Amino acid sequence: MKGRKLLMIPGPIEFEPDVLQAMGIATNSHVAPDFIETFGNSLELMRTVWKSPKGQPFIISGTGTLAMDMAISNLIESGDSVLVISSGYFGIRFKSILECYGAEVTVLEAPTGDVVSLDTIEEALKSKHYKALTMTHVDTSTGVLVDPKPIAHLAKKYNTLSILDGVCSVAGEEINQDDWSIDIVLTASQKAIGVPPGLALLMASEKAIQVWENRKTPVGNYYANWKNWLPIMKAYEERRPSYFGTPPVNLIVALEVSLKIICKEGINKRIKRHRYLAEAFRLGIEALHLKMLPVSNALAAHTLSAIYYPEGVDGASFSAKMNASDIIIAGGLLADIKSTYFRIGHMGSVSPNDLLAVLGALERALIELGYPIESGKSLHAFQNAIITN
């Protein structure tokens, strides 16, 4: 890299040049015909990426937390029972949001690096009626991958809405929203969707919209209320001007560019690329005898890796040496163990060359800090996996 560092955190990520160029064009009117076309097309492209031809897409100025807030505030009323399936920091965030709206929350929390078993989830669903359950597809704090398909099927079996936090998974992990009967899939722009921070993206099922329409009490949120936003989404998709709040014009122009790039690659091919790069990267990490935070490779995300520092290696010194090699990584996020691990994002437009650069810098940092490894070992393992894929 010349002149700048390689950003390898779990979001924001490295963005495609065409996406960044779209951010820099002269800002258009939010009711100009060409912007209306861009917004409407972006909504339609979301259905392709989410695999939800029947879903209702929302594009809102905000973060992934706003998307979580939007899902909860529109579907949950005071006194509703909700089951939170937590595999890290962002499962607990769901709990905090739910409590703001008066929900009665039950949390099923997995041990660090693990997932809650399906049997445990079904036992909870059998014990009482829950209006909804929440799950985190990839928890950014742990790098743990949850399989949402069987959980969504259990939710449907027990007449419970399913809400999937796909902030670190949409466009990087396999999702078939309609086929899997997931009621809400939400994300943010700065992850595998490949757009700078600032957009909350959400897809609601027909059932979710019906539940919202039939709620007994008003939505306790003004900005996130679907009453205000649904007419806007419908208008843009019908190529008509409309207004509630001024949309972030350049971000939405960039979103259309990125969604077109994703669809040109093909969502299935894109998911496969994320998978084989992540698997090859893990082989490189394993070659250095480093331990991953997920308890097994089957539970390791394909969009980021959470890795424990080896014994005797100081995290701050390690990060400083990676930074000196022009690689930016993320530290730990879980409060009780945050100083014991680091995180590397590998999603969006990530390439084998990016990950070779990361592994090379990682080896140098560890050797300089006195960790006994054989130089080139992780690179060899990674290259072999890529070549034989």
Rank of each mutant, 00 (worst) to 15 (best):
V138E: 09
L6P: 01
D326L: 09
F382H: 14
L299E: 01
L359Q: 06
V195D: 05
V211P: 10
V257G: 00
L43W: 04
I85W: 03
F58D: 02
A32V: 05
A254L: 01
L277M: 14
I285F: 11
L255D: 02
L83E: 07
D34Y: 09
I163K: 00
F281L: 15
L75K: 07
A320C: 00
W212F: 13
M292P: 04
L283D: 15
I252Q: 01
F342H: 13
T187G: 04
I193R: 03
A324P: 06
K321W: 04
D69F: 01
N221M: 03
I367H: 11
H30W: 15
P57S: 12
S325N: 15
V105E: 06
E174A: 01
R93C: 02
E109S: 12
V350R: 03
L293D: 09
A200S: 13
S305R: 00
P310R: 10
S169P: 00
N176E: 15
G331R: 11
T63L: 10
I386F: 13
A330M: 11
T246M: 00
L118A: 07
L259I: 02
E77A: 10
V167W: 05
K131V: 10
G194Q: 09
R239F: 01
L359Y: 05
Y308M: 03
Y276G: 09
V170T: 13
P218T: 08
I92K: 07
W180N: 06
D314V: 13
N228E: 12
A300M: 07
G79V: 13
I373Y: 10
T140K: 06
E122K: 08
V107H: 00
S317V: 10
I76P: 13
G376I: 13
E279T: 14
K291Y: 03
S317Y: 08
G284V: 12
N28K: 10
K269W: 04
H380C: 12
L355M: 15
S296K: 03
W50T: 12
H274D: 02
I386W: 13
V350G: 08
V19F: 06
A381C: 12
A381G: 14
T246Y: 00
N389Y: 15
L290H: 03
E14H: 03
F94P: 08
T106G: 02
T112P: 01
I387Y: 13
A320W: 00
K269T: 14
K51F: 06
N297E: 12
S87P: 00
D114T: 03
W226I: 01
D179P: 03
I209Y: 09
Y371N: 14
G331H: 10
E265Q: 14
I9L: 04
L356V: 13
M1K: 11
M203I: 13
S351F: 07
L277V: 11
T120A: 15
T48P: 00
P197K: 05
G55R: 03
N323W: 00
A67S: 15
A301D: 07
L20P: 00
E173F: 02
K234T: 14
E122R: 07
E213T: 05
Y89I: 15
E99W: 03
A330I: 04
V313P: 01
N228T: 07
F35G: 06
L66M: 15
C263R: 02
S319M: 14
